[in-house]
């Protein structure tokens, strides 16, 4: 039962492939696996933090002004992440650039606050936040692995090579915008294909 709150975000309601939320940073940052990991961690912190805080104060927030209140909580967490990254990981901060502050308008976080954290208990909201952000991280890192492998011919996380060079003529297009759209389109088609086959059986 409780485990269900955690796992639904990872598979059944994966925010990227099923709910189609928060695509902008996914496509923009997934050029390299380490960027995608960094973005995933930031979203993890913001989503879990804002879910917990909003669920603690859910009875005190008047329902007419709840959206502005949620936005202030989320924006504060994003500011914290932005300043921490600027101080401790300046290089990654530079590479994520404008997409780090833009987590604040990411529909996943406001969507979870509105649909889940403002109704359920603190512990359930925490589990929901963890599950959803793991789902987000899996999605963004998955796309980044495809794109980095195809565009550079190898996979390296923070200068440490995970998969050695397997091709001498990689396709540079995959780091560029068209590659992002193509990758996510094909992954979604594969998921659809799997679901159609499951229904047919």
């Amino acid at each position: 039962m409780k485990l269900d709150e955690l796992t639904k975000g990872v598979f059944k309601q994966n925010p990227i492939f099923y709910l189609m939320l928060g695509l902008c940073p996914v496509l923009a940052v997934s050029t390299r696996v380490d960027n995608a990991l960094g973005m995933g961690l930031c979203v993890f912190f913001v989503l879990v933090g804002s879910n917990v805080i909003i669920s603690i104060f859910k009875h005190r927030i008047p329902s007419q002004v709840r959206i502005p209140c949620f936005i202030v909580v989320i924006a504060s967490f994003v500011t914290i992440v932005d300043l921490l990254m600027h101080g401790y990981a300046p290089e990654l901060h530079e590479r994520l650039g404008i997409y780090l502050p833009l987590i604040v308008v990411n529909c996943i976080i406001l969507g979870r606050a509105e649909a889940f954290a403002s109704r359920k208990s603190v512990f359930h909201s925490f589990l929901d936040g963890v599950g959803m952000s793991i789902g987000f991280m899996l999605g963004i890192v998955g796309i980044a692995i495809c794109r980095e492998a195809l565009s550079t011919g190898k996979i390296a996380i923070f200068d440490c090579t995970i998969v050695p060079t397997f091709t001498q003529s990689p396709s540079v297009m995959m780091t560029l915008p068209p590659g992002a759209f193509l990758t996510i389109g094909i992954i979604m088609a594969l998921i659809n294909y799997k679901n159609i086959r499951k229904e047919g059986r």
Binding site: P178, F181, L182, G185, A189, N192
Partner: peptide
């Protein structure tokens, strides 16, 4: 359109071609 590509997936692939043109 092939069944698994219907609606959103094919929209993403078209967006890729559009982005290629804009490049």
């Amino acid at each position: 359109v092939p069944k698994s590509f219907q609606d959103l997936p094919i929209a993403f692939v078209s967006a890729a071609l559009l982005a290629l043109a804009f490049m």
